[in-house]
């Protein structure tokens, strides 16, 4: 579904990714693990088009999308939940969702489906997103991404900085989504247990290079932990 091929990218003169190759199979979950500063979020920014790579290519379903703008990638079936529970703070919860649903023929149904996954958002529909808790904002961010009915979802540390009671709920929803079929996921995660439960494929990133990769599943967890402890 997604091929990130020999990507070299960074900010100004600093190179963060040194020839990284990652692939997400169709209807499967691939996870990227690594310490802070390893380049995980940069990799997702390249995949989504927020950062243009200096070298390498990004292919979606075989099509070269390296030069496409992020909104053009969304039109081709990609969705992205960035790090840090981002929202449009002065728009209400409902407006945050309508913004994405506007102009889509299936917008209403897609919104209803997303709200079924996170029912708490219905009760908060009139509240400005900037006044929601971190967990509620993350649920809103995932719901907003799902309204576009993506075939590929990029998730950047979806449970980071969220109260434990909501973490379990978000994890279960993500697992349910990936098991439903028709959705490929590239998951960046620090929480190894959750990542390995969700993923069929893993990559360990260290200082901008893939240092370990293989099949996912809980059986591979010790290998990954060993790779991360180096």
């Amino acid at each position: 579904m997604l091929e990130i091929s020999s990507v070299q990218a960074g900010y100004d003169r600093t190179t963060v990714l040194h020839g990284v190759t990652v692939s997400v199979p169709k209807d499967a979950v691939a996870t990227v693990l690594g310490h802070n500063g390893a380049g995980k979020s940069t990799l997702l920014r390249v995949a989504m088009g927020l950062l243009k790579p200096k070298k390498g290519a990004v292919l979606l379903g075989g099509e070269d999308i390296t030069r496409l703008a992020p909104h053009q990638r969304v039109a081709r079936g990609m969705a992205y939940v960035p790090q840090g529970q981002q929202s449009f703070p002065h728009l209400t919860t409902a407006e945050n969702l309508r913004l994405v649903a506007d102009g889509r023929p299936d917008g209403k149904e897609a919104t209803a489906e997303a709200l079924d996954l996170f029912p708490v958002l219905r009760e908060l529909s009139g509240r400005r997103a900037g006044l929601l808790s971190g967990g509620q904002r993350q649920q809103l961010a995932i719901a907003r991404a799902l309204i576009t009915r993506p075939r590929l979802l990029l998730l950047d540390e979806p449970t980071e900085g969220i109260q434990p009671s909501v973490v379990a709920e978000i994890e279960e929803t993500i697992l349910a989504l990936t098991r439903r079929g028709g959705l490929s996921v590239l998951l960046v995660e620090q929480h190894v247990g959750f990542a390995m439960r969700a993923a069929q494929q893993y990559y360990v990133l260290e200082a901008g290079r893939v240092t370990s990769s293989g099949e996912g599943g809980t059986g591979a967890e010790p290998t990954v932990r060993a790779a991360l402890s180096v």
Partner: peptide
């Protein structure tokens, strides 16, 4: 939030 708007399509 310009970037978020862009990645929201």
């Amino acid at each position: 939030n310009r970037d978020l708007a862009e990645v929201s399509g």
